[in-house]
Amino acid sequence: MGSMHFDRMRFVIADDNAHMRRIIRAILHSLGAREIHEAEDGAVALEMIENQQPDILITDWVMPVIDGIELVQFIRNPKGRCPFLPIIMLTGHTEKRRIQEARDAGVTEFLAKPISATSLYERIISVVEMPRPFVKAKGYFGPCRRRQVKNHKGQNRREKDNVIIDDGEDAHTQIMV
């Protein structure tokens, strides 16, 4: 793998703080991104996602109107327009239960503030290089919350009895009972 540049990728940044949006924009721009859209709250971001069809959403958690978690929940609707959109949640929340909450909502990557150019770059590379499979289950639709499958030492119940039921269009689906 070589070094990655993002000049053909479209980003949406959702953050109510204009200063933080400028910092993120400056980092993305330096990494090659040219198409960067900014939303000052979750509601604007939702509309922007519908209209712009971004490749990656970078969102804050605490925002007025619709917060970051609600935004993720709106996006992770299997019947929505872009349910698989990679979402990097950028937030000052660092408590375990908060991270769990974000993961349960369907966040792809979690990045704690204060951010650095390297940490944001690494998260974007991770989204591109190691995309998570999605899980559709009762009460949850979103990226598989067990990224470290290869290192998982316990019994991997999800490898049991899996049957490929759908290979249509470009999504690849397995059903497991």
Binding site: M4, F6, R8, D55, I56, V135, T173
Partner: peptide
């Protein structure tokens, strides 16, 4: 029952390496 879905990965084709 749950489904594992491998979403389409268009990002790789958009990234310049």
């Amino acid at each position: 029952t749950f489904q594992m879905i491998t979403p389409p990965n268009h990002l790789k084709s958009k990234v310049k390496v």
